[in-house]
Design a protein around this nucleic acid. Sequence first.
DNA 1: ATACAGGCTCGCC
DNA 2: GGCGAGCCTGTA
Length: 296
Amino acid sequence: MNLVEVTAQDFDLSLTLDSGQVFHWEKQGAGFVGLIGEAAIYLEQSGDKLLVTPDTVALVPRYFALDHPLREICAAFPNDPAMNAARLYCDGLRIIRQPRWECLASFITSSMKQVAHIRKMSRALRERFGKPVMLYESHLYAFPSAARLARATEKELRECALGYRAKNLLATAQRVASGRADLEAWCVLGDEELRARLCELPGVGAKVANCVMLFAYERLRAFPIDVWIARVLREKYFPRARKFTAQRLRVFCDEYFGAQGGYAQQYLFHHARKTAARPSRRPLKDRDFASTVDVR
DNA sequence: ATACAGGCTCGCC
DNA sequence: GGCGAGCCTGTA
């Protein structure tokens, strides 16, 4: 295979692709195959170079956000034990720039699901509705457009193992396809306004909205709070607090992690996921967020 | 086996 | 404006 070099300092490809941001890349040989939009790519890492299939090499620096000043971002993290451990563990992890619809749709399917299953739903949707793209002799399938999914039936989406998420994905696809929700135009909105618009979409609450803001709208202070992160925050930052509200938690994250919130969250999240022997003996329940100790 | 996942929504208080 | 339950499916 004829490959082209791209310089990629402070970057760890496999760490980044395995960090729960994106669900369609697959290991192949020494690297990965996947798509950036509808462009099929193979790439592998060799030190501070990426070796990439020539046709699509131009898309790589932007997609993998090689322009983010990663050293500066990490240096600006809060200096505390949990953050320092995560920073060390996740060296080279970048927040990638995903196509907006693909990211939104993927995270609508993600609710109450582990990565392995989100990947399966993504694959089922792509193989059933996506545009086939050749990469050498193998077929890849691009993530289906909103217009295509808007024409699907709920039954067809359920056949992709979406369960109750099918209805939400279909309804959101219809809003996007019809232009009632214009994902591209929303780029110009401020963070609060953008979050509010996203949360109006079926199947999108605060957590999914923050993921989409972070991974598809470059809102690097967006801080998605899921059960993993909630557990980390509770254990590392509030070991004595018996209770705190989701609202207070959000305020704390916004103030404490500030402009680096999205990166900080991703580092804490990935570190927790990969170092936990078991997800948890005692699963975190909603009541763990509940009520009234001052969080400051 | 059967509980439970990287959540959202609705009905109830 | 907080709380609990239900929602589909695959996996441990």
